[in-house]
């Protein structure tokens, strides 16, 4: 199965990169842009056909390495590869 993992900063954690992106958007005239937060997107092929087992595996990948849960949240979708 393929996992599409999104990692985002928790609310309240400062994101200077997001702020810089927001500034650049404003400089380009996108006055509507606000509250820009930068995250990460990771794709992983999981050699597992059973969705429940694949889910458990991806959970552990996120907790143990892909996200730092002190500052980041993670979410993912699984689909047949």
């Amino acid at each position: 199965m393929k996992a599409r993992i999104t990692i985002t900063l928790k609310p309240g954690v400062l994101d200077p990169q997001g702020k810089a992106i927001e500034g650049a958007l404003h400089a380009l005239g996108f006055c509507s842009a606000g509250n820009v937060r930068q995250g990460k997107y990771i794709e992983v092929d999981v050699a597992e056909k059973d969705p429940a087992r694949a889910r458990a595996e991806v959970e552990r990948m996120c907790k143990e390495l892909l996200a730092n849960t002190i500052i980041e949240n993670y979410a993912y979708e699984l689909e047949a590869a």
Binding site: P16, Q17, I70
Partner: peptide, 16 residues
């Protein structure tokens, strides 16, 4: 910090 031997995280400098 990443190994959790110490608490917290070192993040990007405020100045970038």
């Amino acid at each position: 910090a990443e190994a959790r031997l110490l608490p917290g995280v070192l993040m990007r400098n405020a100045s970038l």
